[in-house]
């Protein structure tokens, strides 16, 4: 080691390479959000609210667990809003005081989520009148989940993120399979495969950056 603290160097290149690797990990950890915090709120939202929907509006109109009919949709709305606000704050925190293309990309991507959800919510509520409950749940559940799948695919294209692409493709395919199986089954598929997929994505992302 050299004499002064400011100018201290290394005796050996291995030590320098280790320092580089440590600092890379440290910086990446601070400027990108923790994948668990970005995916788990959505995974839990889907698991809980589509789970409730399956129990209340089961296949063939069966009620597996009796509860007021407003519970599943209210849970979905509240949890979606909470997850949106939470992940918005977490994502914003990691990008703070950094300006340039990547923060613009993040902002535009965030806006596309809001734009998509707002548009579908307005369209679906306009056509909802007169539809039977079973068709309604497929329209709202299937439509919103399709949007999420596509947005993850698009996010994968923006950040060249293969894992996010796999997640988007998984959500898109299981959603279609669920819609084909019909009302009730769709909620079960989205709760388990979709919600589970989001939880796995958070875990995989976290393990990779440790």
């Amino acid at each position: 080691m050299a004499s002064t603290e400011h100018e201290s160097t290394f005796d050996d290149p291995v030590q320098a390479l280790r320092l580089i690797e440590d600092e890379r990990t440290n910086t990446r950890r601070q400027v990108t959000p923790d994948p668990r915090l970005m995916y788990w709120p959505w995974g839990l939202t889907w698991l809980i609210s589509f789970g409730l929907s399956f129990l209340r509006y089961g296949p063939d109109g069966r009620i597996l667990v009796s509860m007021p009919e407003w519970v599943p949709l209210t849970a979905l709305t509240v949890l979606l809003a909470a997850a949106g606000i939470f992940t918005g704050i977490v994502g914003g925190r990691s990008a703070r005081h950094i300006e340039g293309p990547s923060s613009r990309q993040g902002m535009m991507y965030g806006i596309s989520w809001s734009a998509g959800f707002t548009a579908l919510a307005i369209i679906f509520s306009r056509v909802s009148d007169g539809l039977p409950d079973s068709a309604l749940s497929l329209l709202w559940g299937g439509g919103m989940v399709a949007l999420v799948g596509v947005l993850y695919l698009a996010g994968a294209a923006v950040w060249d993120d293969r894992d996010m692409f796999v997640l988007g493709a998984w959500i898109s395919l299981t959603n279609i399979a669920g819609v084909i199986c019909g009302p009730g089954w769709h909620a079960l598929v989205v709760a388990v495969a979709g919600g589970g997929g989001l939880l796995v994505a958070g875990l995989v992302g976290w393990l990779q950056r440790r």
């Binding site: 050299a2 400011h6 100018e7 201290s8 160097t9 290394f10 320098a16 320092l19 580089i20 600092e23 890379r24 440290n26 910086t27 990446r28 400027v31 703070r96 005081h97 950094i98 300006e99 340039g100 293309p101 990547s102 923060s103």
Partner: peptide, 26 residues
């Protein structure tokens, strides 16, 4: 670059996306 503190500064800055700039306190 071959001084611990400056190497760390350079590594941190190299992790930012191209065209991105970071504020001093951050």
């Amino acid at each position: 670059i071959h001084a611990q503190a400056r190497l760390r500064v350079v590594v941190a800055l190299s992790q930012l996306g191209p065209g991105d700039r970071i504020a001093f306190p951050r």
